[in-house]
């Protein structure tokens, strides 16, 4: 069995989520990678990848030509994977449509070659599903698979011509480079609660957010107190987030808040009250005055 992984390369480096997808794919046997645009060399360096299909002419990840191209190659593979990223979720289900198979998105655990675990109901339940399709098309959650190293492999590279795309044309992309990432898609989120005491103190979160390229969130109590605007609210009634790292600063961990962030991979809590419920879900906790901890944290980063 050979698996094919759609590998995303950003600024010359393979995205971590794609390295996790390669790790997941190696569970099925040999791994080929496919790279759209530049970056085949970065993919070829991934340990465990034997062959890289390079499509330099397909620069903007347009789903239509990408899926066409993957479909044309699909018969060689038992599994076709991608990270559960915006790109993976755009292209792979379309590929599944072309192949007439049922895709399996957001896989968090591989039981065997046919059986996968995936969250449903916003992570409130985990479904184990078995696929009867001859080619399995899946996206995997990066946080659930340890990524392969960025270097150490030496795959062969085969260059493929990009098919033309007439129906879909790339116009432009606007990356929020200087701005903060969106709360829901940020890799790191730092949230403040009532412990910040006023709106001005919310600025204390910014230097740390800058260093970690983090989005800034807030608890409902902080929003209700007018410390932060409503769109920053993380929680049951606000935004549901599941970043790689969630840093909760001066918030107690009301259950409404926990409902919105409990699926984060790593949770850090900073609070003066050692009994605060947030510590019950935190992987790492610092009991202390946030006004002292935040500046030292910024320096340590």
């Amino acid at each position: 069995m050979t698996a094919l992984v759609l590998v995303e390369v950003e600024n010359g480096a393979v995205r971590q989520a794609s390295r996790s997808a390669v790790a997941a794919a190696s569970r099925f046997g040999a791994v080929d990678a496919i790279v759209f645009g530049d970056g085949a060399q970065a993919a070829a360096a991934l340990p465990g990848v034997t062959r890289v299909l390079s499509v330099p002419g397909l620069v903007n990840d347009l789903a239509e030509p990408a899926a066409d191209l993957l479909a044309a190659r699909a018969k060689d593979y038992s599994h076709i994977l991608a990270a559960a990223s915006a790109t993976g979720k755009n292209i792979l289900p379309r590929l599944a449509g072309l192949l007439d198979v049922q895709p399996i998105p957001d896989v968090v655990e591989i039981k065997d070659a046919d059986t996968f675990v995936r969250p449903i109901y916003a992570g409130n339940a985990l479904a184990t599903v078995r696929s009867s399709d001859s080619i399995k098309v899946l996206t995997v959650r990066g946080s659930n698979f340890d990524p392969v190293a960025a270097e150490g492999g030496s795959a062969t590279v085969e260059t493929i011509e990009a098919p033309a795309s007439e129906k879909s044309v790339f116009v432009k992309v606007e990356l929020s480079a200087s701005d903060r990432p969106e709360l829901e898609s940020a890799r790191v989120v730092i949230s403040g609660g009532k412990g910040l005491k006023d709106a001005a103190n919310f600025k204390l979160l910014e230097p740390i957010a800058d260093k970690l390229n983090a989005a800034i969130g807030a608890s409902r109590a902080a929003v209700d107190s007018g410390f932060a605007p409503n769109e920053m609210q993380v929680g049951q009634t606000g935004k549901i987030v599941a970043p790689e790292l969630y840093i909760a600063v001066g918030l107690s961990g009301a259950i409404q808040h926990l409902a919105g962030m409990k699926d984060s991979r790593v949770i850090v809590a900073i609070n003066t009250d050692p009994e605060a419920p947030i510590f019950k879900v935190a992987d790492y906790g610092i009991v202390g005055d946030l006004f002292e901890v935040l500046p030292t944290l910024e320096k340590a980063l």
Binding site: Q236, T237, G238, A254, I255, Q256
Partner: peptide
């Protein structure tokens, strides 16, 4: 109380 209210599935339009 808080974990209890959670089980009432209470919600009000935020704004």
């Amino acid at each position: 109380r808080v974990s209890s209210v959670f089980l009432s599935s209470t919600n009000h339009e935020e704004n």
